[in-house]
Amino acid sequence: MIEMIDRAKEIIQFQEMIKSWTRKELRTRYKGSFLGFLWTFVNPLLQLVVYSLIFPFIMKFNQENYAMFMFVALIPWNFFTASLQGASGIIVWNSSMVTKVYFPREILPISYTLSGLCNMIFSYMIVFPMLFVFRVSFTWNLLWLPVLFFIQTILCLGLTFIVCSINVYFRDLENLISVGVLALYFLSPVMYDITAIPSKLQKIMFLNPMTGLLVMYRDVTFKGVALDIKMLFISLVYACVICFVGWKIFIKLQKKFTEIL
């Protein structure tokens, strides 16, 4: 525990590195392309166009405004998958730095997660005008969004810690994860509403840390209803536990990074 406090202090000292690496992550993602940083907005917009074309005409769902219904959950889901899939390589890709320069290793997962958060926020900026276009009513409940962002960031950080450090030892993890993520996608209420699931199965679905968050994202944006405070609290605790355990694992594993890489 004392070790963790010391590390936390050091990480705060390196906050400038977190900032500049987050910025770098964001800036270099679309560097070299014609639209550049604009892609951060264009990408989700195009996704929305695809969904709103496909679903009403090709696949018929009963859900009204299905594209929007799905979109508000898909954006957080993208952040979640990035913290599993993209995160697996962050230590390995930066091996030249990790093996040769000292800095608190946590900086890499932290800045990666923060760049994911920024991306999600930018994507949500598309959501607001779209809610208007699709005539979904705005409510004060939208103000819960920052809280949800916060909880999800903690959760994603924890997962990133675990995935990126274990992947140094078992490179197979990357491949396992991409399959796992696909399975989770169908087991999470992204494409469908949680209420469409029998209540017995619902309990099992809540073992997935994203389930609660997805339900709440949809409640406050698409449905415009107040969220379940109990669910919010459980999600927060769940995220904190994962983050804590993830950090512990990371601290333990990071000592041998240089030797293995």
Partner: peptide
Amino acid sequence: SLIELGAGFHPDLSGRENIYNNASVFGFT
């Protein structure tokens, strides 16, 4: 350390931005 020079340099960023990133690795504000 002058062991690894140019830690974290990114080819697509300008020299100035890279100075910035590289210096931040040393924990500067």
